[in-house]
Design a protein around this nucleic acid. Structure first.
Lengths: 192, 192
DNA sequence: TCATCATCTTGTCACTGACTAGATAGTGCG
DNA sequence: CGCACTATCTAGTCAGTGACAAGATGATGA
């Protein structure tokens, strides 16, 4: 921004990451161009490559950052429901990260930083059902809860529940969802 | 494929759509190139443009086709659980369609064909909870069920439940998920 | 002071999407 | 039958992009 006189940018890596988040939030990952990001940061078209190697590298770095943020968001949630609420909150507050994190074909799956951050987030997710020792299969229970939160978050970001939501807060709506489900009010079969 | 002697391809539209599905299923929508699809179909690089106008048009056509297939898959399911199972089945059998359908930034949101197909699928989803007249809010119930199925399907396609699944069939696993949830065995709060 | 290294620039290549103009084939209408 | 009309496809072109290579610049430390 401030017309720099120095040859070096100073913090190009962060500048590019931040600009990438803006672009993705606005127009999706497909609209992301390394050259455009370079222009926004005021550097030459090939400068970002030194920090991220290539487009996939940049997206992988974003995803790793996202998993780190998710782990922070989930940390020390009081109970399972609240963990789900925070999962939804993360998706709402970091839509660009969320999108990239769950598109494996955009990422370098074997990246060490990505794997580490993913493991941290995964541990937080597992911690949500760890205390439920009375369950026959805690892992399956965890996936059930994860599916619900992830599905709602995804439908939210893809504008598929916009009209049902109305003016209500997404997090509150999700709370009511879980309430409805777990009150056993929703018969699965033979509703007639 | 068969070295055509005629000037016209015959069914270029279908050929391009089919090739696009292959590419997307293999490497994601980002790897899709109109010129590559043209090469695969054995036509000139600009031929597909006549059928789909541009890249977004092609993806929109794919999404519309997907919503149509989804509506067919969901039609006349016996009960709500089975509707969820079929939703998961659709995602497994048509991963390329599923991916494109839920990335709005790739699509032309106001396309008439897309909107019509989406409405058909949406009607099938709503039909799943229509009979449950004892519910206070059928719409919220529908979103709860949709979230669960969509979340599981998404996590499945993004390879996030692979190890938990083991050798078991995804549809069976989803049935057990719903059983676990609706048996009320999963306490949301104060699990201690 | 000077060597070393990370950072950034410049130049280049093949590829892509989009657009244009024109060639070719099928279709209906007289 | 012949002729216009339209859909389909070809060929050529342009700007933008990712990736790579080689060189310039500045910071760091011995």
């Amino acid at each position: 921004m401030t017309s720099r006189s120095t040859y070096h940018h100073g913090d190009l890596r962060q500048a590019v990451l931040a600009a990438a988040l803006d672009v993705i939030a606005a127009d999706g990952p497909g609209a992301l161009s390394l050259r455009d990001l370079a222009r926004r940061a005021g550097v030459s078209h090939a400068a970002p490559a030194h920090h991220f190697k290539d487009r996939t590298g940049l997206l992988t770095a974003l995803a790793a950052q996202g998993y780190g943020l998710l782990a922070e968001t989930l940390a020390a949630a009081p109970d399972l429901r609240e963990r789900g609420v925070r999962y939804v909150r993360f998706a709402v507050e970091h839509p660009a990260h969320f999108q990239v994190m769950f598109q494996p074909d955009l990422l370098r799956a074997d990246d060490p930083d990505l794997l580490a951050a993913k493991e941290r987030a995964s541990a937080e997710l597992r911690a949500g059902v760890a205390g439920l020792t009375d369950l026959p299969d805690a892992r399956t229970a965890g996936i059930a809860a994860w599916s619900l939160a992830h599905g709602f978050a995804t439908l939210l970001l893809t504008h598929n529940v916009r009209d049902a939501l109305g003016d209500s807060d997404p997090e509150d709506y999700f709370r009511s969802l879980t309430g409805l489900l777990f009150a056993g009010q929703l018969p699965l079969a033979e509703g007639e």
